[in-house]
Design a protein around this nucleic acid. Sequence first.
DNA 1: CCGCATCCGTTTCGATACTG
DNA 2: CAGTATCGAAACGGATGCGG
Lengths: 219, 219
Amino acid sequence: MPTSRSYGDACGIARALDVVGERWALLVARELLLGPQRFTDLRRALPAASSNLVADRLRELEGHGVIRRRKLPPPAGSQVYELTAWGHELEPILVALGDWGVRGTVAPDPASLSATSALLALRSYARPAPDAPPAICQLALDDRTWAAEIAAGQVLIGPAGPARPDASLRTDPKTLAAMLGNPGAFDTAIADGRAEISGDPRALRLLLQNAALPPPAAA
Amino acid sequence: MPTSRSYGDACGIARALDVVGERWALLVARELLLGPQRFTDLRRALPAASSNLVADRLRELEGHGVIRRRKLPPPAGSQVYELTAWGHELEPILVALGDWGVRGTVAPDPASLSATSALLALRSYARPAPDAPPAICQLALDDRTWAAEIAAGQVLIGPAGPARPDASLRTDPKTLAAMLGNPGAFDTAIADGRAEISGDPRALRLLLQNAALPPPAAA
DNA sequence: CCGCATCCGTTTCGATACTG
DNA sequence: CAGTATCGAAACGGATGCGG
């Protein structure tokens, strides 16, 4: 039985929390930021959430109009969850919240990191040289493949498209996150096999170097 | 016993939710956005939250460095809670979340509205003419007095300062919220006694007219 | 009266097991 | 693969108590 409790407060913040304030709700939304996902993808991305919780949150978010369930056309036939237009507008809020969160002084735990999290961090913190030529990197993480398009100092991330990438990187989310702004991590990850690359390494270095992590907060 | 559970996820969003993701935590933070508050002020602003919950959240938020408790100098002697610098950085996030929330298609419930909520809405949605002369309005809501300073098309809200206001308005939060962008509500509230004014009514009209409420979201 | 702490019934969470 | 069923543990929500 899905949760249905309200703060009973007409304030917009409280109304937002009525919709996405339940535990795990915003993390489910986070997982959908970069594209539709199947139930099992969500479970893999959020291994600490039990299956009934994920199911409950999906039902509630759908009921509130934040997400929508869609049946993929044959031959795939499977069902995916995706954000509605309104749900997608959570993106800047979640990005800002993540920025705020990493500035916390709490110990950075060696915990899990979903592919979406690592890609969002990449997109947020990557600072490719603005005058660099456009490039497309293919990123394979956790059995899914994404495309990072570098253009005009910006990084766009989405499902891998038909465009041929200039370079490919296969690794796990934590290794990718460790690479941000740390060229040494890039080389060592390749050396010890935690990452494999093909294509033009310069495109990947362009993507991963110069990442600007926000400074921790002052008390 | 305060809550201490973690998502165990290194992502910034999850780390933020470890800190402010528990029920009521962000609403407590909201109440502190416009200045320090005593325990009892918070209870009055959040009547639907039980006292132990408020106490628990305050303890947790303090432990995480979001808020701080401060003893007012004599003769006041009482204790107040206030946001730390890091806690204050939640402000744009909460404002954005509130904007997102009011765009939800759920029925606008006739529920309660705290003074802080109404003032945040005023600050967010007020659109005073940019070429209007600066003015200070004093706003008395729920036994506390605030100052709204109009300058260059912007509205700044804070605790009432020593500056003499051009106009004063005494009403309740819901009536104030109803006035936003609705000149008729302003006049009728005064007519039926739900609001009292003194000073120059033009300053108040400048503040309350032309409010731009965001359009509801499309599905 | 303010600032909580304690008690207690209800709801939600979280883990595991199970089904179409 | 995509969920449902069940159950103990924790958190919530309301009431009441209690020292300063």
